[in-house]
Write a protein that binds this DNA or RNA. Sequence first.
DNA 1: CGACCATTTGATATGGATCAAGCGATGTGG
DNA 2: CCACATCGCTTGATCCATATCAAATGGTCG
Lengths: 230, 230
Amino acid sequence: MLTETTLQAASSDCWPGRATGNEPSVGSLAMAGALELMGAPMSFPRNVEIYGEQEPADYLYKVISGAARTYKVLIDGRRQIGAFYLPGDVFGVEIGDEHTFSAEAVTDARILVLKRSAMAALAAHDHEVARQLWMLTGRELQRAQNHILLLIKTASERVASFVLEMAERIESSGEVEMPMSRQDIADYLGLTIETVSRMLTQFENAAAIALPTPKRIVLRNREVLKRLIA
Amino acid sequence: MLTETTLQAASSDCWPGRATGNEPSVGSLAMAGALELMGAPMSFPRNVEIYGEQEPADYLYKVISGAARTYKVLIDGRRQIGAFYLPGDVFGVEIGDEHTFSAEAVTDARILVLKRSAMAALAAHDHEVARQLWMLTGRELQRAQNHILLLIKTASERVASFVLEMAERIESSGEVEMPMSRQDIADYLGLTIETVSRMLTQFENAAAIALPTPKRIVLRNREVLKRLIA
DNA sequence: CGACCATTTGATATGGATCAAGCGATGTGG
DNA sequence: CCACATCGCTTGATCCATATCAAATGGTCG
């Protein structure tokens, strides 16, 4: 299963917020070492499944590099993408025993895989770890609520929101390198690829963005985009 | 603030799953009394605000009778209902310090109001309480994820799903007494009242339901509805 | 019983989907 | 290193589901 056994990436910073560690509770420091032992970085090629819907949720995943998506396919073939995960993001957190979405690598990706049972055991003795797990669920909830608000908007509002959101997450010197395809964006926003493409062209014509290549978006005037998002 | 000071409804069963209580951890039993003291049932008339978006999230709410809705209004006036809460449901759980949605009574309602800081203090000493709080967040997440899947479906699929969901939650002898208006349903499903009404008429013509009054839905053939939900 | 408000029903408009080419970037083999 | 094939994206034409606008009906409450 594990493509590598090197554990160096599984350092103590593998858990968000863990670095604060100003609450020396019992087990917290002792278990930090265990964290390193139980996490392993794995490589997933582009478009390869990380886990399937209804599989046992035995692991948590933290993106090191690349990107991942979670999704669900309805009986008639429509696909809904739940979220995109970029370096630093954690996914695969579940309340029940099974994954409710499937997950795939959007691009070639390195992902830190953490055993859930070990996390649970850790949380049972360390309130801070338990709190972090709760926070992760809470952040997913906020993301899902924002997603709901996105899906009631018009096509141009959805696409503008998406561009701005990605800009906040991965902007680098005025540009965004989109890891995902138009189909991915469409399935996230509940639109067709044609509509996504038309909206981007529209934004380009309005001088809000530039598209040197399909995946590269230059932000030329984000005020125009912000005025569109309702 | 409190319309009544009677605490009788704030018994130890006010917390879901708490009744199992087969983990006599420190503080658990001692704090059970505190729970009674900190929860108070309040009465909210129909359409009255329970809390507003961006207000400090100092309390949790458990519906005793009646119904509540959470919602957000976009700048242009569109309203999105996040969820409906019926007797037994808990709402107002937040990760941050502020409510991200507003809440109102759908009908005259009695709602148990629990101080959040007290819950947090309790959770700090009782893993079971902490787990229950986490579970509440997780259940909200699942609900939000289902809501996302609903919003990418067609109008008839959304309305059929809604009727079936409400039936599961409040069916009584083959009937559902809807507490909310058509506008509420429309704002939950991302449709207009006209479309909701037309779909219900359509289901009635297909002999799937009957509508003796607008708020009363008789389930005549739920297989027809199930076949519609994709 | 009467008035009001919610709901239903009808007619028309429209945003985004669908169907159908065309174009361009990427990557491969000669 | 270049020609060509493939795949993903863009652009265009048409259609359809749902919104919008408008009116009629019916349930509820004083």
